[in-house]
Design a protein around this nucleic acid. Structure first.
Length: 594
RNA sequence: GCACCGGUGGUCUAAUGGUAAGACAUUGGCCUUCCAAGCCAAUUAUCUGGGUUCGAUUCCCAGCCGGUGCACCA
């Protein structure tokens, strides 16, 4: 398939066969919002379930579900309120939009232009006589527009409690950390996952479901003690990956690095073992759900691309139509998020870590005699006591004298040393409070779905007829199996087909029953939505040696075998789980020639 | 948000200043039919608003939606 055709063909298929389509089309449509049709919703749900199974259940992590709307202070703490806010100025001549704060900072001494109001920024642009970097036209007089990528709303009546739709699911995890750490019995490391919607009021949504204004993320926040918790790479060290490190991206003849997780971590290509671990299990997971690993890579963020608090960051990228699209990000976020919420929020975002051996320390302490200080200093008494405490920590020798001198808001105050009740005590410290570091694998579910569809889209020829089909993995295919009576006007065939369909549904399979038109048309229909297996009930399955048998056809090869009805559920369970291949089924049963 | 291109049944296309053609799909019927078979019949469309005009799906303007490029992507 040539470049450019893939997404066009996919979009057409997606609309026609119910994977996804632009939403609210009856009202003219709205940019950046998509509705998943029946096939797409099932596929997406299967992908989410597969992610849960791997990243929550198998890893022993904790899944939560936080609200999509949170109050303003959450986003003040997270930095989204400021950092997500862009000031744009548009050139009247050529129509280019530029970051107003960047223009001002580049052309003046000002280093914090983003703190200016839009009006102030517009004035500044006029004062500095700034011109459009693209065409050189004067920008004076152009208005500066504030654009925040978060959707704003009001919580409750009135506008006193502004809230925002979360721009990423992660904040819900960070904000609830104080409760979750209790649940986790204050023991690091532990991981918390969340699968849910996030919202960004994108300036320009593009490429169907690749960049939308409402999307689904699956995020894992793995909390560790950076001093103690080391990643165990034994399960992933031999996993082969295609890496595109920052150094290679910057080099003139930069190339991919084919290596294993173990080697990449050892050589320092991947800067952090925890990131290496998650890259490894992500690589394997993507393969099981059906990403074409020849069109998949891990790309390291360039230094300028990374947030300042992140020491290393990798994206998982898939290739569609010649473009690489980011489908997951793996970031070492240090203690940035929890520290910020600890600073802004009321609760304790630290974890108490016990030392292996309790430490004995000598500590200078005071126990100020408030009965004396109170009457003497009145309202200042508490400040004096605090100052004594501070002094004891900083300069215990000061208490050797008869008097100590304190500096209270610039005022010199002298008190008798006795009043302080100074002593040096021997204390036992069992541990310390630390702010955990966070390793964040963050997956874009919609982009994963898009990749799976694009990578699964195939065309070939069967008996001279062109066909298109989706070679989706049986583990995520929206419909597991089609059930067809060969013809619809023979009661015995229809009855057995009904029974088979009911039995498979009872066993938990998504079944499509279809008795319309020719058998070939029914196969094509299922091929096109990626149904991996179709079961046909024919006359040979009703009588004689073949009584109570059916044929099962595999989507990609079109090959068929005949097998007893009683074996169906067991066979399909193995095929869906990936513990059996269709080749195994071909070996064990009578092959039906077309 | 800007620029360019586009918007006709479910889908893909055609045509037109005088209400729209085809293919595929879909539905019903015939047919004991294993890979989009055939025959008969049926259903379904000019993105929205304004303007020009006797008359606009067609021409003009604006908007919306989509594609591409720019910018943006914390």
């Amino acid at each position: 398939m040539s470049e450019g055709d893939e997404s066009a063909a996919l979009t057409e298929l997606a609309k026609r066969r119910g994977f996804f389509f632009g939403s609210s089309e009856a009202y003219g449509g709205v940019g950046g919002f998509y509705t998943y049709g029946p096939q797409g919703a099932a596929l997406k749900s299967n992908v989410e379930e597969a992610w849960r199974e791997r990243f929550a259940v198998q890893e022993g992590n904790l899944e939560i579900e936080a609200p999509t709307i949170m109050p303003e202070p959450v986003f003040e703490a997270s930095g989204h309120l400021d950092g997500f806010d862009d000031m744009l100025v548009e050139c009247a001549e050529c129509g280019e939009s530029h970051r107003a704060d960047h223009l001002i900072e580049d052309n003046s001494e000002l280093e914090d232009a983003e703190t200016l109001s839009p009006e102030e920024a517009a004035e500044k642009i006029a004062d500095l006589g700034l011109v459009c970097p693209t065409c050189g036209a004067d920008l004076a007089g152009q208005s500066v527009e504030d654009f925040n990528l978060m959707f704003e709303t009001n919580i409750g009546p009135g506008s006193s409690t502004p809230g925002y739709l979360r721009p990423e699911t992660a904040q819900g995890i960070f904000v609830e950390f104080p409760r979750i750490k209790e649940y986790a019995r204050n023991s690091l490391p532990f991981g918390v996952t969340q699968v849910g919607r996030a919202y960004r009021n994108e300036i320009s949504p593009r490429k169907s479901i690749v960049r939308t204004r409402e999307f689904t993320q699956a995020e894992l926040e793995h909390f560790i003690d950076p001093e103690r918790d080391e990643a165990d790479l034994s399960a992933v060290e031999d996993v082969e990956v295609l890496l595109y490190p920052a150094t290679e991206q910057e080099a003139d003849d930069g190339d991919y690095v084919e290596t294993t997780i173990g080697e990449a971590v050892e050589d320092g290509v991947i800067g952090n073992a925890w990131l290496g671990y998650f890259l490894g299990i992500a690589q394997e997971w993507y393969e099981t759900v059906g990403v074409d690993m020849d069109r998949f890579r891990f790309r390291q963020h360039l230094a300028g691309e990374r947030a300042h608090y992140s020491s290393d960051c990798w994206d998982a990228e898939s290739e569609v139509d010649g473009d690489w699209i980011e489908i997951a990000g793996f970031s070492y976020r240090s203690d940035y998020d929890l520290s910020k919420h600890g600073e802004y929020g009321d609760d304790d975002f630290t974890v108490f870590q016990q030392y292996d051996e309790p430490k004995t320390v000598e500590r200078a302490v005071v126990d100020p005699d408030m009965a004396t200080l109170g009457p003497e200093f009145g309202a200042q008494a508490a400040d004096v006591a605090d100052a004594l405490e501070t002094l004891a920590e900083r300069d215990p020798d000061a208490f050797d004298a008869d008097e100590v001198t304190l500096d209270i808001d610039g005022e010199e105050i002298t008190v008798d040393t006795d009043v302080a009740n100074f002593s040096v005590e021997t204390q036992t410290e069992a541990g310390e409070h630390i702010t955990p570091h966070v390793v964040e694998p963050s997956f874009g579910i919609d982009r994963t779905v898009y990749t799976l569809l694009a990578h699964a889209y195939e065309t070939d020829e069967v008996d001279g007829e062109a066909r298109s089909y989706l070679s989706l993995s049986p583990s995520v295919a929206p419909t597991n199996v089609g059930v067809f009576p060969l013809v619809s006007n023979v009661d015995e065939l229809v009855d057995l087909a009904d029974d088979v369909a009911a039995e498979l549904r009872a066993a938990g399979f998504a079944v499509v029953y279809d008795d319309s038109g020719s058998i070939g048309r029914r196969y094509r229909r299922q091929d096109e939505v990626g149904t991996p297996f179709c079961i046909t009930i024919d006359r040979d399955g009703l009588e004689g040696d073949g009584a109570n048998t059916v044929t099962i056809r595999e989507r990609d090869s079109g090959k068929q075998v005949r097998l007893p009805v009683d074996d169906l559920v067991g066979t399909l369970v193995g095929l869906r789980a990936g513990t059996a291949s269709f080749d195994d089924v071909l070996d064990e049963n009578e092959v039906v020639e077309a």
